[in-house]
């Protein structure tokens, strides 16, 4: 986290947000912590809502409660190939337009059920038939879903309070009858 911490300290020193020049049509400032992505604060909020639609809140907290969007941005910024980073940013930028086309409104204005429909529709875009814009939405959602699941399941909350992770997994048993395993159902 050194880079991000450094940027934060710099922000404090300069008395405000650290800005990098934006090279797209967004008027909003680009978040400097993700230097490989052109992501603004409102895009980050939109991403949180998409993640929260993929894994919604309930008895157990959802992706939004756990701020999984931060993890998604870290992973896409640091670990994903450049062409995929481009698709991700474009897809996120274009997602509200896609939402308007599919459901007649910006994503944030939709009811949860409609949000789910929009995301489901995006994920069911045909790889063969769709135009470039639609394919970008598909790729963006695939990346987002993958890291939403990873960030959610590998979060401190899930790994300590819901499905505790054990550094010591116990002695090996090489023949466990599956129907002898009784895991209490976790009600999401």
């Amino acid at each position: 986290m050194h880079r991000r911490e450094a940027l934060k300290s710099l922000a404090i020193l300069t008395g405000g947000a650290v800005l990098v020049p934006s090279c797209n049509f967004e008027k909003e400032d680009i978040l400097a912590a993700y230097q490989n992505l052109n992501v603004t604060e409102s895009m980050c909020k939109l991403l949180a809502q998409i993640a929260d639609t993929i894994i919604p809140p309930g008895n157990i907290q959802g992706a939004g409660d756990l701020a999984v969007q931060d993890f998604i941005l870290v992973m896409v910024n640091d670990c994903v190939q450049a062409d995929q980073q481009g698709m991700f940013t474009k897809g996120l930028q274009g997602f509200d337009n896609f939402s308007k086309e599919e459901a007649g409104s910006k994503f944030s204005k939709l009811e949860p059920a409609d949000k789910e429909k929009v995301v489901a529709q995006g994920l069911s875009i045909s790889e063969e038939d769709a135009d470039a814009g639609k394919k970008t939405i598909l790729e963006f959602l695939r990346i987002t879903k993958r890291f939403t699941i990873q960030g959610y399941m590998m979060s401190e909350y899930i790994m300590t309070q819901v499905k505790p992770y054990h550094l010591i997994p116990g002695e090996y048993n090489g023949a466990v009858l599956i129907n002898s395993i009784s895991n209490p159902k976790i009600n999401g």
């Binding site: 157990i60 699941i149 999401g188």
Partner: peptide
Amino acid sequence: DQSGIGMPLKEELLN
């Protein structure tokens, strides 16, 4: 099975 989204996906991930 990670094919779905929403509550069905969440339930499946947890169980």
